[in-house]
Amino acid sequence: MARLTLRVAGAAAPRTVWHRYVYVDRWARWSPHIRAVRAGRRTMAPGLSGTVESVAGIRAVFVVDDVDARHRVWTWRVRCGPVRVVLRHDVRKHPKGSATRLTMRGPLPVLPAYAPIALPALRRLVRP
């Protein structure tokens, strides 16, 4: 199991960035590779499960493991076929406005392949 961390800063306020994460039905607005999210509820919470569909039509199943709104940290597990990845996101104050960090754990070939897809989404996430 490998680990890879991506970091991005931008002018959006930390509260704004956090809310963009919390409302799962809005993920496609800031994440260009997501077409749709289907889940049992609109807001993120531990135990929430559903599917994420990419613009390429690939569907992945997810489960949210942990949400700490006070510290603006959340973790989820994503599975697409035999590939399983754990993703931990956090949002914090930054001199530019906010910063977000994504730490991924999973198979080595998958993480570096996903990084160029995730980075544009993270950059849009922290835009005002």
Results as ranks from 00 to 15, higher is better:
residue 84 R to H: 12
residue 31 S to H: 03
residue 51 T to M: 08
residue 109 P to W: 04
residue 51 T to D: 10
residue 114 Y to K: 00
residue 8 V to N: 02
residue 125 L to T: 00
residue 42 R to F: 03
residue 29 R to E: 15
residue 118 A to R: 04
residue 46 P to Q: 13
residue 75 T to G: 06
residue 20 R to Y: 09
residue 25 D to C: 10
residue 59 R to Q: 04
residue 6 L to V: 05
residue 13 A to Q: 13
residue 38 R to M: 09
residue 100 T to S: 09
residue 85 V to Y: 03
residue 50 G to K: 04
residue 111 L to Q: 06
residue 34 I to G: 10
residue 10 G to T: 09
residue 7 R to A: 13
residue 26 R to Q: 15
residue 71 H to N: 08
residue 11 A to M: 08
residue 90 D to A: 04
residue 16 T to C: 10
residue 51 T to Y: 02
residue 71 H to I: 06
residue 43 T to L: 07
residue 38 R to D: 14
residue 29 R to S: 15
residue 78 V to L: 12
residue 19 H to A: 11
residue 5 T to R: 04
residue 65 D to A: 14
residue 23 Y to E: 12
residue 28 A to C: 10
residue 5 T to M: 05
residue 108 L to R: 06
residue 12 A to S: 15
residue 51 T to V: 12
residue 119 L to E: 01
residue 120 P to M: 02
residue 62 F to P: 14
residue 18 W to Y: 00
residue 121 A to P: 03
residue 5 T to F: 03
residue 1 M to F: 05
residue 6 L to K: 00
residue 89 H to A: 11
residue 75 T to V: 08
residue 78 V to C: 13
residue 119 L to N: 01
residue 27 W to Q: 05
residue 57 G to E: 14
residue 94 H to E: 03
residue 106 G to V: 08
residue 47 G to S: 08
residue 96 K to P: 00
residue 113 A to R: 05
residue 52 V to H: 03
residue 42 R to P: 08
residue 90 D to P: 00
residue 66 D to G: 06
residue 6 L to R: 00
residue 110 V to S: 12
residue 22 V to T: 14
residue 127 R to N: 12
residue 108 L to T: 07
residue 8 V to G: 04
residue 49 S to F: 00
residue 31 S to V: 02
residue 20 R to Q: 13
residue 55 V to C: 04
residue 3 R to V: 10
residue 4 L to D: 12
residue 38 R to F: 05
residue 118 A to V: 09
residue 3 R to W: 01
residue 22 V to P: 02
residue 88 R to L: 13
residue 32 P to W: 04
residue 114 Y to T: 04
residue 69 A to S: 13
residue 1 M to T: 10
residue 21 Y to D: 07
residue 110 V to H: 05
residue 112 P to I: 08
residue 7 R to L: 09
residue 68 D to S: 11
residue 12 A to L: 14
residue 123 R to A: 00
residue 58 I to F: 06
residue 92 R to W: 06
residue 19 H to K: 09
residue 77 R to S: 09
residue 45 A to D: 06
residue 55 V to T: 04
residue 101 R to H: 01
residue 22 V to D: 14
residue 37 V to N: 11
residue 54 S to R: 05
residue 115 A to N: 02
residue 107 P to F: 03
residue 12 A to Q: 15
residue 53 E to H: 05
residue 35 R to W: 10
residue 104 M to A: 13
residue 122 L to K: 05
residue 64 V to D: 14
residue 45 A to I: 02
residue 63 V to P: 08
residue 88 R to W: 08
residue 30 W to L: 10
residue 80 C to V: 10
residue 8 V to K: 03
residue 88 R to T: 15
residue 41 R to L: 06
residue 81 G to H: 11
residue 31 S to K: 05
residue 89 H to C: 10
residue 2 A to Y: 01
residue 103 T to Q: 10
